[in-house]
Amino acid sequence: MTEQQKSALVVRGGWGGHVPVPASDRYAAALKEDGYAVTVSDTLDSYLDRELLAATDLIVQCWTMGQITGDQAVGLADAVRAGTGFAGWHGGIIDSFRSETRYQLMTGGQFVHHPREFTTYLVRPLPEHAEHPVLAGIEPFTVTTEQYYLHMDPAVEVLAVTDYEDDPDNPELAGVVMPVTWTRRWGAGRVFVTAIGHNLADLEVPEVDSMIKKGMAWATR
């Protein structure tokens, strides 16, 4: 690895319904194409390796549900606080480790519900953030997939939103303006999240793919 080359750690696992291996392979390949040295890990014990994390410019996580130990959560949060970037999509980053609130403080949002069926909804980039690197070239677009209802940290910088669609099981939620894509700072580190990405078809939507690639670049140390 040359001195200038960026390094990325891709951590994947958890619930198989979010296709963690093919989904993370997609973006590991994209990072390699952009010149990153990429390490892929199938264990959360990577978050205990402080030497590895200190040498890592970007962590991309695709790990839905599961359990993280307190030491693993602290190791990850400390690395990001020290400047390592953290990025991910959908349940792989905001439905991870449901009982670990220290992790949720860092990501800035937590999945709590989605309608039983896929929903077609409009994603609206916020005009006040039109110049943000993550939104470059992104106009409003529609997706047909799970629409996440989230509990959100008001301290994040929301870049794109959606109007929550009708949900027969929870009609009270209809019309709520819900964040879809956001960033935040965690100490010296940058965190990028998008709620879209249930399956590979979601990731192949050009606007989604663009936001994730640009989000990873933005979060990199």
Rank of each mutant, 00 (worst) to 15 (best):
V11A: 07
R12V: 09
G13C: 00
G14F: 08
P20H: 01
P22M: 02
P22F: 01
A29S: 11
A29Q: 14
L31N: 01
L31Y: 01
K32I: 09
E33H: 02
D34A: 15
G35N: 08
A37M: 07
A37T: 05
V38D: 08
V38W: 10
L44F: 02
L48M: 13
D49N: 13
A54F: 00
A55D: 10
A55M: 05
T56C: 04
T56A: 00
T56F: 04
D57V: 02
C62W: 14
Q67I: 08
T69I: 08
D71I: 03
A82F: 06
T84Q: 08
F86C: 11
A87C: 03
W89V: 11
W89G: 05
G91T: 04
G92T: 06
G92C: 02
S96L: 04
F97M: 14
F97R: 05
F97S: 12
T101N: 08
R102Y: 02
L105E: 15
M106P: 02
M106F: 01
Q110G: 14
Q110D: 15
E117Q: 14
T119S: 13
L122G: 14
L122K: 13
R124G: 03
P127L: 08
P127A: 13
E128H: 12
E128R: 13
V134K: 02
G137C: 07
E139A: 15
P140C: 11
T144V: 14
T145I: 13
T145A: 09
Y148D: 15
Y148P: 14
A155Q: 14
V156T: 13
E157L: 13
V158H: 02
L159G: 07
A160I: 07
T162P: 00
E165M: 10
E165N: 04
P168S: 13
D169W: 00
L173T: 09
R184E: 09
G189K: 06
V191M: 12
F192T: 06
V193F: 10
T194K: 02
A195T: 14
I196H: 12
D202Y: 07
P206V: 06
D209W: 01
S210N: 12
I212M: 04
K214S: 15
M216P: 09
